[in-house]
Design a protein around this nucleic acid. Structure first.
Lengths: 212, 212
DNA sequence: GAGGCGTACGAACGAACGTTCGTACGTAAG
DNA sequence: CTTACGTACGAACGTTCGTTCGTACGCCTC
């Protein structure tokens, strides 16, 4: 199961075409869901014949796998990059949330697929994506734990992180990038403030809650 | 489209059997998604023949419709019931969250379907469910707005409510009722405290943030 | 017993699914 | 020019889908 399309003799432009195919698939998946999306529709979206898809991926399953793996991997990568040189715990968390929300806004289709089809893959493919996802969550969990260096043990930090993930993942359900008057950065700041200081403090202050 | 199974001469037990069918369908939908669920599997889960389903509903679409409509409707009903006689704004919000989380825990399948298949239905069916969903959200929005009676206008209360919904809706992704050491009520209290006072205040206090 | 109706199911329908096969075209190496 | 190979597609495969049809059984009313 899940025989990946291994490296072989390729034509220049192969990678670019496969990337284009993955983007098209992500669009269709985000619109109709994984099961509701047909290879024929994906092919039409990518302007290829249905059979032509199989020159670039081994099957429908691998399309979803690459989309999810690439998304979590690049999320994690850009997170680590944006955290470089930032030391204040509150600012670090704010940076992470901003990175997440920006990534969401710019790759709405991919992340929608990642949020909705978490349990679709099975076996090795699921495990591989799960590992990246877990790493990303752990990164956030560490940021949350880092908020309180004075306390040795914080039993609820895991659940607090899970709730934070709820806020920053659920917003794809209601946020419309083109139509909203609020920018992605403003939204991220508000979510950070809400998590750190709660609704009262984050709204009675004019700013985002005091992160430097 | 969406011709509902109108009231006709029924046998006693008809409603009970249909309810049982809806519960079976909700289980299958929550396991494999709407598109991934086949009528044959739903029939097997309900211990009926595939053709027998059509004695109780007009089709697959109506199964999802009834599940979603009934879920939001009973959520809204139990919310209003549990708010009776509660006046303190913070306690009202805590009550609403507790009601939501309890309902989630007791009807995991149905609410999972409601969270994941929000955009599956179309036309009149979607509109009917959407109206119930909107009413439920508005109820929460009013509770949030009620937290600050002294301020006339709170522009971000809508977004804050949406973020609160993120917390209390996303937890089906990680909460395992049977395996978690935290009760549903404790979780609800923690989520309320997190929303009201933020991570610092809600965890440095030992209690749930001061409700009652 | 005869008739009507609600309920149940096996069989079958056309449609759509993911995927494979055979073939054709274009290009780079021999 | 010939050969080899990556790329592309139309056609077709077997399977599964949601749904319908015809029929049979059980129960109530005459």
């Amino acid at each position: 199961m899940l025989k990946l399309n291994t490296a072989q003799n390729r034509t220049p432009g192969f990678d670019g075409k496969r990337l284009h195919l993955l983007e098209s698939a992500a669009r269709v998946f985000s619109r109709t869901g994984y099961d509701g999306a047909s290879m024929r529709r994906i092919a039409a979206e990518a302007q290829v014949s249905p059979a032509g898809i199989y020159n670039y991926v081994a099957g429908k399953e691998e399309l979803l796998y690459w989309i999810q793996y690439h998304t979590f991997d690049s999320l994690l990568r850009s997170l680590n990059r944006s955290l470089e040189g930032v030391s204040d715990p509150r600012v670090r968390l704010a940076t992470a949330v901003r990175n997440h929300v920006r990534h969401f806004g710019e790759n709405m289709h991919e992340l929608k697929v990642c949020a909705r089809e978490l349990e679709t893959l099975e076996g090795e493919a699921y495990d591989a994506v799960h590992e990246r996802r877990r790493s990303y969550f752990e990164a956030f969990h560490n940021l949350v734990k880092g908020l309180q260096p004075e306390q040795g043990h914080q039993p609820d930090s895991w659940i607090a992180t899970a709730n934070l993930f709820g806020m920053i993942n659920w917003f794809y359900q209601w946020y419309d990038a083109g139509r909203s008057r609020m920018s992605l950065d403003d939204l991220a700041a508000q979510q950070t403030a809400l998590f750190l200081d709660g609704y009262f403090a984050s709204t009675s202050n004019g700013d985002d809650g005091g992160n430097e």
